[in-house]
């Protein structure tokens, strides 16, 4: 279980202290709702290690993550945009999840085939990322999540801007991936509809505090 206890982040001034506490079980999707600038994405940056908490702890199955640097945390993250390197092909973008030098074994390439099939993009393996639609790009990013097999999946409003049909498809895909791969998924959004569709638990960011709904 992913357990965040009394995690604090001091933003700019001493008065702006954000406090977070939540728990996420395997196969569970937790949604964080809140207004723009309320500190939702800050929580994801803290879990991913992009920001350093001033207090509190982040534990995954009793393993302390708080002191680990970003690259050592068992986390995959998806942003609203800029999840791919546009000048690389779909295959290379996914392979970067396992091989930083892009030197990959036949086994890795077969895995990429399989995963692309899973997300419905098998025809686009050698297409440049820049020529894909917004929804397809997010699918590729999700495919990389599958290949990396990190137990924590963070979603920072990744489907904002997509048309309603594609967004629903993507949400269903996230749910499927979470359940099938035992992921601990936290999704930041401002769409109540998204939460109702896939979230097991909903938290609201209110006055710098995370409140369970």
């Amino acid at each position: 279980m992913l357990k965040i206890t009394d995690l604090k982040y001091r933003y700019k001034s001493i008065d702006d202290v954000y406090t977070y506490a939540l728990s996420v079980k395997p196969k569970e999707i937790v949604a964080i709702l809140g207004e723009s600038g309320s500190g939702k994405s800050t929580l994801l940056d803290l879990i991913a290690g992009f920001l350093t908490a001033s207090d509190g702890s982040i534990k995954l199955d009793e393993r302390e993550l708080t002191a680990l640097s970003a690259e050592k945390r068992p986390v995959s993250i998806l942003f609203q945009q800029h999840n791919l390197f546009e000048h690389l092909s779909v295959q290379k973008n996914i392979l970067l999840g396992v091989s930083r030098t892009l030197k990959s074994s036949q086994k890795d390439i077969l895995k990429v085939h399989k995963i692309l099939k899973e997300v419905g993009l098998e025809r686009y393996e050698h297409t440049l990322a820049s020529s894909l639609s917004g929804g397809q790009q997010q699918r590729v990013a999700l495919a990389r999540v599958l290949l990396r097999r990190e137990p924590i999946l963070l979603l920072d409003e990744p489907f904002t801007g997509l048309d309603a049909k594609t967004r629903m498809e993507m949400l269903d895909l996230v749910q499927k991936i979470t359940k099938e791969n035992n992921l601990h998924t936290i999704m930041v959004t401002h769409e109540l509809q998204d939460c109702e569709r896939i979230a097991d638990k909903i938290y609201l960011m209110k006055e710098h505090q995370l409140v369970e709904q």
């Binding site: 992009f50 050592k72 986390v75």
Partner: peptide
Amino acid sequence: EKYKLAKSLN
């Protein structure tokens, strides 16, 4: 986000 992605991909 690109820098964050690079960091999380180590």
